[in-house]
């Protein structure tokens, strides 16, 4: 019998990512995403007009980009799409078809994560730029002039955050039965709990928000008032926490390794047996 060609590890990751992207792109969710991006432009534009000279355009952009986009929209989008990609296929048993192919489960899962990361990071960047464009439509609000640099700092940081949230979504999808509930606990519960613990507790590395916040603050060099709005001064002790990129890389690495371990060993199609 002739040996049959098989996709190598990297080839499987790429093919899985391509197919996952194609399937995710066909969801109706994208109409909501498109609407949200236009809404962000409108929100930026309207707020810029309404607030006028009472605030600085750059501060307003930073506050909106962080508290609305960075801590609500991007995490929930990445987690939802990640859960759809991995847990959705387990729920509707699509995964069984993929497991029957002559490829390993680990590259399949990494392909899913790659697809979710790319889509979520794209939405993070587009959303940030939409908000910026909306606010920049009122240049008179920007007292020191419109600086695109700030938008790119946020876009880059939130894109990295989206990659990390995608890894968390993949992990919850592979490991637990109700991944969105666990994701909610992770985003709201764990991150709030950590934020209220002293830095010396050493838990900040295990969140996504804190490394992201450090990345943003390092990039935009805010004045004291803006820094306090983004990260209350009493908890802002970056020297005690570590390097944000390294922290994010660790978090992504550990969650993906755990996700692969669960995904590889689980018999997802076990029948109910009475």
């Amino acid at each position: 019998m002739t040996a049959r060609p098989r996709l190598r590890f990297l080839g499987t990751v790429v093919e899985s990512a391509r197919q996952t992207t194609l399937r995710l792109c066909r969801q109706r969710l994208w109409w909501i995403v498109l609407g949200s991006i236009f809404a962000l432009v409108a929100v930026g534009w309207l707020l810029g007009m309404r607030l006028g000279e009472r605030t600085n355009g750059q501060s307003l952009f930073c506050i909106l980009a962080w508290w609305l986009h960075g801590t609500v929209l991007v995490p929930w989008f990445a987690l939802y799409v990640g859960v759809q990609a991995v847990h959705g296929s387990l729920e509707d048993r699509t995964a069984l078809y993929l497991f029957l192919r002559p490829v390993g489960r680990v590259p399949l899962l990494l392909g899913n994560w790659l697809a979710v990361s790319i889509l979520s990071a794209s939405v993070a960047v587009l959303g940030t730029l939409a908000l910026f464009v909306g606010l920049a439509a009122n240049p008179e609000v920007w007292t020191d002039g419109v600086h695109g640099h700030v938008a790119w700092v946020f876009a880059g940081s939130l894109a990295l955050g989206a990659v990390a949230y995608a890894a968390a979504a993949v992990f919850f999808s592979a490991a637990v039965r109700r991944p969105l509930v666990w994701a909610a606990f992770f985003v709201v519960g764990l991150q709030q709990l950590t934020a209220n613990l002293p830095v010396s507790a050493g838990l900040r590395q295990f969140t996504i928000t804190d490394p992201l916040r450090r990345l943003v603050l390092d990039g935009i060099e805010p004045d004291a008032r803006l820094a306090d709005l983004l990260w209350p001064a009493e908890t802002f002790q970056p020297e005690k926490i570590g390097t944000p990129i390294v922290d994010l890389a660790w978090l992504v690495g550990v969650t993906l390794v755990l996700a692969c371990w669960f995904y590889r060993r689980t018999e997802y199609d076990a029948r109910p047996r009475d």
């Binding site: 098989r6 048993r93 699509t94 069984l96 078809y97 029957l100 002559p102 490829v103």
Partner: peptide, 18 residues
């Protein structure tokens, strides 16, 4: 993986790529 390259499996349960 090598074995699955030579085997086709039609599962009992309904499953398709949505």
């Amino acid at each position: 993986e090598t074995v699955r390259a030579h085997i086709g499996y039609m599962p009992e349960r309904e499953a398709y790529l949505p």
